[in-house]
Amino acid sequence: MAASSIPLPASEPLGASPWIPVPFRVEERASETADTITITLTPPKGIPSRPFRPGQFNMLYAFGVGEAAISIAGDPDRPETLVHTIRSAGPVSAALSGAAPGSTVGVRGPYGTGWPLASASGKDVVLVAGGLGLPPLRPALYEMLRHRDRYGRIEVIYGARTPKDLVYYRQIQEWRGRSDLRFQTTVDAAGREWYGDVGLVTARVPDLRIDPSHTVAFLCGPEIMMKFTAQALAAKGVPDGSIYVSLERNMKCGVGLCGHCQLGPDFVCRDGPVFRYQDVRRFLSVREL
């Protein structure tokens, strides 16, 4: 996976083409769970940093293995580094997860739309994350906490299968200690070592301390989780038009040309991955889509 062996076209400066991955250096690699890691990447000398919007993703290339769309999980105010949290689930993500400090990962991006933070200004905000849905929401949380006065109450519900599947564990403890943020974690099942909540994220929705009619909700996680969470939020009184979801599809080109990630009239890579729930709800009910 050494970047130095990758031939690059001399006709285009590095980073100018959306098709050619730029070799970023892996600066740090931190273990989150048994199968999930977080890597911090820096660009090669002479290549500018890559500002991104919360909710956007990069195409990460494990040289010689393949490419995968991975959400950006870092702080938008620190674009000089790219932070990605990756679960080893297939050959590409396994190769990316194994990238050691000092090695190289190809980066194309950032791509996609991102969370509509402007629409949340002046309102209560609910973030609901399931499993590895927290990394794509973390940049939005960084941004909201940096501009805390722009928002009303901020409520976060983070659910995972077991306590061992929770990512950013130490940071969650810091967030839970803040008085200007309510961060709830819950797991589907646990042993006696867990003193937190057990139950689904949907079960926490009725107790949200929000003004539902003036609330914007951002959901990220398995689609089945988002579907039922959206239903629970609607039952709470949050308008459908104020609920946004981040979708995951088989993204290849990242710029809306190849069609692999088409969802109805949209391409998830270009028009998403964040969509208003009411615009995509009908597709989430299509059998075997």
């Binding site: 689930a89 399931g130 499993g131 659910g159 299968r161 589907d188 689904l200 079960a203 996680g221």
Partner: peptide, 17 residues
């Protein structure tokens, strides 16, 4: 009813891989 709903959702393994 709510506990039944939640049990059904737990059976679906919302965070399954």
């Amino acid at each position: 009813a709510q506990r039944l709903d939640h049990t059904r959702l737990q059976l679906m393994d919302l965070h399954g891989r």
